[in-house]
């Protein structure tokens, strides 16, 4: 072929040649393999920007409240780094397992923290991938004998290299001895032994139920050495969260709105948290307020300034709880 001595330089050129009838498909694919390999090698050299542990921890520190959890995670980071240094110095290294139990009400930041921990462990080279697979009972437990082990193993396979986050984990033990949940727990425990270096399991759920769950399965207690308790947010924390959430959406809270929210939240402290969920509660309140603000503004017949469009006042929030 006459075109042989000229070589295509870019994928676009190759495709163009195919359209012109100068290249057969198989030749084109081979050229593509060559050309894209060259560009990929170039790209590999430039973007080796891996996330650092400091960056992940900074993100954690930016979260509202959670002081106890932040402290523990910082400790874990220090421990891992020192162990790595000890290994480098030829000293004995502690075999530590990092499986965790997160107990706390919904909306207290369990999932978010779990994701950050996956990324942190990736940055610290404890986990190869650091992604998170989030599952619940229905994803692990099957319908007939043998099905459960299969399902659980499939989930574990997906989580390998990262974090397996089991929400409402206590429900695995709810059905008693004959329930397939037991089989899921057994499979999980076996996998945790087999993939020691590649899997981090986090069990999450309400505090009371999780305590009961661990007590009924003594074998689990020792396998999950790290327990993090996610406390309900205080009213002040929740106002902080609200402020941050509105900022992200290009709104601001007027002073009376902030004051009103604080009073409302402190008055109800400890009352709705159990069921309504904390940060989620704040979000619902905000979404309601944003809708009410729109109604309020549309009803006005004067031109609206940027400030008007951004401000949420207390009147927007009132009545948003029910």
């Amino acid at each position: 072929m006459a075109t042989r001595d000229v070589t295509p330089g870019s994928p676009e050129e190759i495709l163009h040649w195919v359209e012109q009838g100068r290249l057969a498909p198989d030749e084109a694919v081979l050229w593509l393999a060559q050309v894209t390999k060259a560009t990929e090698a170039k790209r590999d050299r430039t973007d080796s920007t891996e996330e650092t542990a400091d960056a992940v921890l900074a993100e954690l520190d930016r979260m509202v409240g959670l002081s106890e959890i932040k402290r523990v995670v910082h400790d874990i980071r220090a421990f891992v780094e020192v162990q790595a240094l000890r290994r480098g110095a030829g000293l004995q290294v502690n075999q530590q397992t990092w499986h965790m139990v997160f107990s706390g009400a919904p909306g207290t930041g369990k999932t978010t923290v779990a994701r950050l921990i996956g990324r942190l462990f990736k940055a610290l080279n404890v986990l190869p991938k650091g992604h998170m697979v989030e599952v619940e009972r229905a994803d692990l437990v099957g319908e007939y004998i043998g099905h459960t082990a299969q399902k659980t193993r499939d989930v574990i396979k997906r989580a390998l290299g990262g974090v397996l986050f089991i929400d409402e984990a206590y429900s695995l033990a709810r059905g008693g001895e004959k329930d397939f949940g037991k089989e899921a727990i057994d499979t999980l425990v076996a996998a945790m032994e087999n993939y020691r270096e590649e899997l981090l399991v986090i069990l999450a759920g309400y505090p009371d139920e999780m305590a009961w769950f661990l007590n009924t399965n003594p074998g689990l207690m020792s396998r999950f050495p790290i327990r993090l308790e996610f406390k309900d947010y205080s009213a002040v924390d929740m106002v902080h969260i609200a402020r941050r959430m509105v900022r992200e959406r290009d709104y601001i809270l007027s002073q009376d709105a902030e004051q009103g929210l604080l009073t409302l939240l402190s008055d109800n402290e400890g009352y709705w948290h159990k069921n309504a969920g904390n940060a989620r509660m704040v979000r619902n309140l905000l979404e309601h307020a944003i809708r009410r603000q729109a109604v309020r503004l549309v009803g006005r017949n004067i031109p609206l300034s940027r400030h008007d469009l951004m401000t949420l006042t207390w009147s927007d929030f009132e009545g948003g709880l029910d």
């Binding site: 994928p11 495709l15 195919v18 359209e19 012109q20 498909p25 694919v29 593509l32």
Partner: peptide, 11 residues
């Protein structure tokens, strides 16, 4: 040929 090129583009 156009279709082949489009297909390869997706590749």
């Amino acid at each position: 040929r156009h279709l082949v090129a489009l297909t390869l583009e997706w590749l």
